[in-house]
């Protein structure tokens, strides 16, 4: 990505993706079974979520109805993968952004435990903080008190963002509705009408943001942070922290669905999954047991759209020096958690 900077403000942002669009090239022409088996091998960060989306899409296209137990098992796999992904960010990347040491040992423990009490204990000790109760983020006032006092790197990064630049990367870009099924249906219509929709997806004609802030916008503390700072990097970091707590606490509230299938037509179907980074949709067209067309609309495509949340949020950001500018851009990018490596270029106008 390239930020044009006039010495005091960002005057323009260009985001160019060099990712190969592999899904259709690798999967078209294969049998459905081959395609479903290949998908998790192709994607490193969210292989299980990708596998679930692929299976649901292919089943929807074939007109198969899956029972509630299988869907529930798949949702469990999606949820535990999402927790691991968030932990990787919060234990390795967020400490660096906060000027603290990464905690690979805790992450290794969490990866070996995968789920359950051991992961809960790691989140409690390393993210929430040993001295804080799980309910600390339940309302705006106690969330703010947690932020003032907690010693974890996650709290430190959010606190620093709030103190230094609370409205960093705030944009007017809409949040994608938290109803994955409804959004997936609309995406199905859009994919049919627009052959390149997945490269720059839109919601009601405009870019939209997906991810933790979109899902957690109604949570009282997240809503309070967003009311003060806008749909900003700070609000996204807060939403990710609050969401992780809600996912692993022992008295977890009833959970929203995180995966589903949408039949489109005979031979065509969608699978949707709410991943750590946002809504992931796989769309498949099948004829005679063979994949004819395969498209993936991934969270990064929404959030790093050329006019999406990152590009809009960075326009106009004030920075007195190039070092400060780079630091702010990295924080804004990390708040949206891209699933690919990225490079920041600064061009001085």
């Amino acid at each position: 990505m390239r930020a044009a900077w006039d010495g005091s403000r960002v005057t323009g942002v260009e985001i160019a993706s060099r990712r190969p669009r592999v899904a259709n090239r690798l999967l078209a022409g294969r049998t459905v079974d081959e395609a479903v088996a290949m998908v998790p091998r192709l994607f490193s960060l969210c292989g299980r979520s990708q596998a679930v989306a692929a299976a649901l899409a292919c089943e929807a296209a074939a007109g198969q109805v899956h029972d509630a137990r299988i869907l529930s098992e798949r949702e469990g796999a999606v949820r535990s993968e999402a927790v691991q992904e968030v932990l990787r960010r919060m234990l390795l990347d967020w400490p660096r952004l906060a000027g603290m040491a990464p905690d690979a040992a805790a992450l290794g423990d969490a990866r070996r435990a995968l789920t359950g009490d051991a992961v809960r204990a790691i989140v409690k000790a390393r993210i929430v903080g040993a001295g804080s109760d799980w309910a600390v983020l339940d309302d705006a006032a106690s969330g703010d008190r947690w932020l003032e006092a907690a010693a974890t790197p996650v709290a430190a990064l959010i606190r620093r963002s709030a103190a230094e630049r609370p409205a960093l990367a705030a944009s007017e870009v809409a949040l994608l509705p938290a109803d994955g099924e409804a959004v997936a249906r609309a995406i199905g219509v859009a994919l049919a009408a627009d052959a390149a929709f997945e490269r720059a997806p839109s919601w009601r004609g405009a870019p939209a943001e997906t991810g933790a802030l979109a899902r957690m916008r109604m949570q009282p503390w997240v809503a309070a942070v967003a009311a003060r700072s806008g749909r900003s990097a700070l609000a996204r970091l807060a939403a990710r922290g609050a969401e992780l707590g809600a996912q692993v606490r022992p008295d977890a509230p009833p959970r929203a669905r995180v995966a589903g299938a949408v039949p489109i037509a005979p031979g065509a179907g969608l699978g949707w999954v709410e991943t750590a980074r946002g809504l992931l949709v796989h769309a498949v067209e099948i004829a005679a047991g063979t994949v004819r067309r395969y498209r993936i609309v991934a969270p990064t495509e929404w959030n790093f759209h050329p006019r999406g949340a990152l590009a809009a949020g960075l326009a106009g950001v004030a920075a007195a020096g190039e070092g400060e500018l780079r630091r702010l851009v990295h924080l804004a990018v990390e708040s949206l958690d891209p699933c690919v490596a990225y490079r920041v270029e600064v061009s001085q106008a």
Binding site: V22, R25, R41, L42, S44, L45, A104
Partner: peptide
Amino acid sequence: HVGYAIGRLDPDEALKTLALFAGME
């Protein structure tokens, strides 16, 4: 991923996956 190995692969699987990517334009 970002400087950390995050998963170890079965060598046969790894070679199959590499062959897939190698076949891509």
